[in-house]
Amino acid sequence: MLEVNREMVWKGTKTGLHTTWELGKVVVPTAMLVAVFRASGLLDSITALFAPYMGYLGLSGEAAIVLFSGYFVNLYAAAGSIMALNLTIKEITICSVMLGFCHSLLVELPISQKAGSPLGYIFIIRLACSLAVGWLLGVVLP
């Protein structure tokens, strides 16, 4: 039987609140930044620039913002971008699955290296998985 007491519930709540706070520190500013991008017309330029390449992944040009913020910053930033953009569920799904494989590279690649796996090798594996699965989902998803 599972043992449950008040202290566990309290500790879990604290961890959850802490996670929410850490999340909020990234999600809210990112959503604001993307809103500014949209209002200033920068979003349209980025969209136009990446639209041809994103098409291979079944994504619109805007989704490039989500992928970049996920690859280079972290998943919270990607989540903030998704909240501020008007993507379809298909696009959200493709971005999410792609980013699962490959994210927070600036932080996580050095961690992998410390744990005994070369940086370049882990980078290639993660990016290849991300792009391959993105392409596959773009083809397969209705």
Partner: peptide, 18 residues
Amino acid sequence: QGLRGLWTVALIVIPLMI
């Protein structure tokens, strides 16, 4: 928009952490 999204996430993350 960010805050609304954060609220949705918090409603799931806090029970999950417990």
